[in-house]
């Protein structure tokens, strides 16, 4: 539940019970990093996306700087609502390393570290 804190109050409400994820809020931004709206996501679902990864490939929701930490639960929730699946049944997205953005210079020196050890 930790990552919920990062999300605005309005969005947080949508995790529970009756949500405001209805089409009247079509322009509501779901993925802030990539500026993907509710409408974009509903459109992807209409075109048969059934998992968080499929939505990501179509709309870029989850491909931003935070790598979906802020939006992926919300995307799951929208998927659940629009496809009639239970939230727990919606396949979550894949999280790919690194978990937080890291400087390329740090990555480049990884190998030197291992060299030192050997």
């Amino acid at each position: 539940m930790k990552n919920l804190k990062k999300i605005s109050k309005q969005k947080q409400r949508t995790y529970e019970g009756e949500s405001d994820l209805n089409i009247e809020n079509a322009d509501m931004i779901i993925c802030r990093c990539q500026e993907v709206t509710l409408k974009d996501i509903v459109q992807a679902i209409a075109e048969d996306a059934t998992t968080v990864n499929e939505i990501k490939r179509r709309t870029r929701a989850g491909m931003g700087l935070c790598q979906g930490r802020s939006c992926s639960r919300l995307v799951r929730k929208i998927l659940a609502e629009h496809t009639g699946q239970k939230f727990a049944k919606v396949i979550p997205g894949t999280f790919r390393p690194p978990v937080r953005p890291i400087a390329l210079s740090t990555l480049a020196s990884l190998e030197e570290d291992t060299d030192d050890k050997s």
């Binding site: 931003g64 700087l65 790598q67 790919r96 390393p97 690194p98 953005p101 890291i102 400087a103 390329l104 210079s105 990555l107 480049a108």
Partner: peptide, 8 residues
């Protein structure tokens, strides 16, 4: 060197 990677 100064840029950040977000995934791999």
């Amino acid at each position: 060197a100064d840029l950040h990677t977000i995934r791999s």
